[in-house]
Each structure stands twice: as C-alpha cells, then as structure tokens.
C-alpha cells in the first residue's frame, strides 16, 4: 500500500513537473512572440529619426540635446548630435554589445560602455542607443490583466546594461507602455514610461515620448521626444567606425 502510494506521489510529481515545464516553455515562447511584435511596433526594421532629449534637474533647470538617429536590423544604431553647439558633430555607434563615441576634436572613435552616459542625466548609453528588446532579452509572461501583458525579461548575455526588465505591454495594439529596469541584485535602477502614441506617417505609429526616472537619481527626470521617424534603407557600411565622422551626410 505504501509502495503504491509512493508510486502515485512520484507519478503526480512527474506529471506536475512536465506540465509546469511545458507551461514555462509555452510562457516563454508566447512571451518572446509578444516581445518581438512589441519591438516591431516600436521601431521599423530600418529607419531614420530626430529626437530631443531633455534632462530635468531637481532645481527645475533643463538641458536639451537633439539627435539624428539611424537604425538597421536588430543590432545596428548610429546617432549624431545635432545640438547644442558644444556637442555638435559628436557621433555614437552601437553594433550589438559594442559601442563607440566619436568626438571631432579627438578625431577617432573610442570604445564606450553601455552603462556610461555620454550626456548625463538618467538615460545611459544603452537607453539612448537601444536595440530591439528581443535581441538582448528572453521574455516570459509573468502576469496579465484584461488590458495588459506583464513580461519578465532576462538578459541573454552578461554585457547588457540591465540584468532584468519588467515590461508592461498593451494587449490591444501590442505596444510597450512601461519598463522597469533591475540590476542583478534585484534593485530597481530606473523606470521608463512610454507615452503619447503618435502617427508618424509611413505606417509608423508608436509612443512619441519616453519618460524616465530613477530612485538612484531622486528629483531627476529625463524625457526623450521623437519628432519624426521614417523608413529608410541604409547600407551596412553606414554602421561602421569609418563612417562615424561622415554621418552628417545622411541628413
């Protein structure tokens, strides 16, 4: 009798494990699918855009930067500083996990890290030159409400700015509405909120404003505002160190 009971318990545990594992895999597959669509809705495969970045400080003062950005595929982003004059001509390039900064006076690109911030404020380099989330993270569905999916994103590699993300995705249009960024220790580093869904034309509809705040930078707030975004076919050579000083030719 005891043997039979033990056998039944083992069978139960095995079946539970199989179901749980299956559920986990399904959640991950489903999560990755949602993440991929959310990525596609945020950024076309190949595009150019103009963005303004505003750093608001605790005393209410602001600093503004305007960037011209081009992106191709999942892992290629290049960005040119258009204003202010003190930063004009600087350019940054990201190819997967690699990032470089070109300063006209220095005359050559230097490697920078994703955790650095070339402009100060709450946004770091990884935020400003963001790749597709699905390129850097593996997603599972953590929870869902009638209107939103809540995804749990885990970094695919160690060379990613945040080890873990928690992402809210609107079910109706599969659009990211909020992202919380966590360190490996579980500490919340920053929160990004995606607002003001806007039609940019060219069948591109996405949030025009990304607002970020951080418990590590109390009183600081940074805003990223997209003024234009349009499809543009670009050769791979645009995303090279050699081309960084020539990025202005694309404008």
């Amino acid at each position: 009798m005891n043997k039979n009971r033990l056998f039944l318990i083992l069978i139960f545990l095995f079946v539970s494990y199989v179901i749980w594992a299956q559920e986990g895999t399904t959640n991950m597959t489903e999560g990755n699918k949602i993440l991929k669509i959310a990525d596609e809705n945020l950024m076309p495969v190949s595009f150019e855009s103009y963005r303004k970045l505003i750093n608001e400080e605790p005393d209410g003062s602001k600093k503004e930067f305007i960037f011209y950005t081009v992106k191709k595929g999942k892992d290629k982003v290049a960005m040119l500083y258009v204003s202010p004059a003190s930063e004009k001509g600087r350019a940054t390039l990201r190819l997967g996990d690699n990032m470089w900064l070109y300063i006209p006076n220095v005359g050559r690109p230097i490697r920078i890290t994703s955790m650095q911030s070339v402009i100060g404020g709450v946004f770091n380099n990884a935020d400003i030159m963001r790749l597709d989330y699905s390129f850097e993270y593996e997603a599972t569905i953590l929870d869902q409400t009638p209107s939103e999916y809540i995804l749990d994103l885990k970094a695919r590699t160690q060379i990613v700015a945040y080890d873990k993300l928690k992402m809210w995705v609107d079910k109706k249009n599969i659009m990211v509405t909020k992202v919380e960024c966590y360190a490996a220790s579980g500490t919340l580093i920053k929160t990004l909120e995606f607002k003001n869904v806007k039609n940019f034309g060219d069948e591109i509809m996405r949030p025009a404003v990304i607002e970020t705040s951080s418990p590590l930078y109390k009183g600081y707030r940074s805003l990223m505002i997209y003024s234009s975004m349009k499809h543009r076919k670009l050769p791979d050579e645009v995303f090279t160190l050699e081309y960084l000083s020539r990025l202005g030719e694309l404008r």
């Binding site: 690699n98 490697r111 890290t113 955790m115 650095q116 160690q158 060379i159």
Partner: peptide
C-alpha cells in the same frame, strides 16, 4: 586592439 570585457570594462 580594444574590446569590452564586460558592460563597464574596456581594455586596449
């Protein structure tokens, strides 16, 4: 040469 060892470490 230069390379990133981690997200915050570069060697050259």
């Amino acid at each position: 040469f230069s390379a990133n060892l981690r997200e915050n470490v570069e060697i050259h």
